[in-house]
């Protein structure tokens, strides 16, 4: 088991080194940072001096090493546009995105699994068929359109929920949270539905098909022959067996909830890292883009490492094999 985890950690580090390389090469290949930093009025001496000062005259490998060294310590440099350290800006923005992602992730998993099990058990029921058809909409409508439709319905027409922003937030020692105020919670509803809808339908359809497969297995039949009730069979025996493939997908999807919050954040003007990234692209604010890229890849890799370890928790056969 330990060697299995070590192997996975090793692979994760390799992935991070490669994304780090991509992030770093943006500095070198997307425009010249010196051009960005010094204005129109500059002398060749200024350029040379700054190049030396920033270590840009060093070989590529040395520069990459320094970049990694700084990145590990949380130092991603200074934003071209705002003139503040990138780490500081990210820390300020991260709570908004993480809270949004957490709420929509929980919604997607809870409703996805519950509806998946329901539609599998009542395979031929009317409600199950309606849900299955409706889920097609969730998969096929683009996120921004869902967001706009929700805003139109609940903010413009009904006026129940705010159409943009986080509402009032409370600062808890550097972490600004929207969970503690009514307006903060209300502001979370529409964006988190928009963000989680696609993942929810995906999880639901996956749980359903896995569940149908498991319900055909001999051990389910044998459980029936032992006289166990349907509830125990469905939720204890069958559901656990569907979890291995479902967790794989949930892992990947949670990563993409954070990564692709960009669109939702744009539609709802949500002050998170996604919106920050979009603005950074508009102004070619490369330190911010690089840091964002690193942040997302760390999250992806971390979540998937967790998923691999969870497998062994669920399936005892993997524990012995590993």
């Amino acid at each position: 088991m330990l060697s299995f985890i070590l192997k996975r950690v090793g692979q994760s580090i390799l992935v991070l080194l490669i994304t780090g390389l991509v992030a770093f090469s943006m500095f070198t290949f997307v425009g010249d940072p010196i051009d960005n930093m010094l204005g129109q009025e500059r002398t060749m001496e200024d350029v040379e001096r700054l190049r030396e000062q920033l270590g840009l005259d060093q070989p590529f490998v040395v520069q990459y090493y320094r970049f990694l060294e700084q990145a590990v310590q949380g130092n991603f440099g200074v934003s071209y546009r705002q003139g503040r350290p990138v780490a500081e800006i990210l820390l300020e923005r991260a709570p908004a995105t993480l809270e949004l992602a957490a709420v929509s992730g929980v919604l997607a998993i809870a409703f996805g699994i519950a509806l998946g099990v329901f539609t599998a058990i009542r395979r031929n029921g009317i409600a199950a068929n309606v849900i299955m058809s409706a889920s097609l909409i969730g998969v096929s409508l683009p996120t921004f359109l869902i967001g706009i439709l929700l805003i139109y319905l609940f903010s413009v027409e009904l006026g129940w929920l705010p159409s943009f922003g986080r509402g009032e937030t409370v600062d808890l020692g550097g972490w600004t949270t929207g969970f503690l105020t009514v307006s903060g919670l209300k502001a979370l509803i529409l964006p988190s539905i928009t963000l989680g809808l696609y993942q929810m339908t995906l999880i639901m359809r996956l749980v359903r098909s896995e569940m149908l497969e498991v319900l055909r297995q001999d051990y389910v039949r044998f459980a029936k022959a032992r006289g166990l009730s349907d509830r125990v069979i469905n939720f204890r025996h069958a559901l656990k067996n569907t979890m291995v493939p479902v967790i794989t997908v949930i892992g990947l999807q949670l990563g993409s909830i954070i990564a692709f919050a960009i669109i939702t954040e744009t539609v709802f003007q949500w002050p998170g890292v996604g919106l920050l990234f979009i603005n950074a692209i508009q102004f070619v604010d490369i330190p911010v883009m690089a840091a964002y890229l690193m942040l997302i890849s760390v999250m992806f890799v971390g979540i998937n490492l967790l998923v691999d370890i969870l497998y062994a928790f669920i399936d005892p056969r993997l524990r012995v094999a590993a």
């Binding site: 297995q217 001999d218 051990y219 039949r221 044998f222 459980a223 029936k224 022959a225 032992r226 006289g227 166990l228 009730s229 025996h237 656990k240 067996n241 669920i314 399936d315 005892p316 056969r317």
Partner: peptide, 22 residues
């Protein structure tokens, strides 16, 4: 269902698949 397993029990063909692996 109440009779199943209590008064009549069943043994299936394939012991590899009749137990829940988890």
């Amino acid at each position: 269902r109440k009779i199943r397993g209590k008064e009549i029990a069943m043994i299936f063909q394939d012991p590899l698949t009749s137990l829940n692996p988890l």
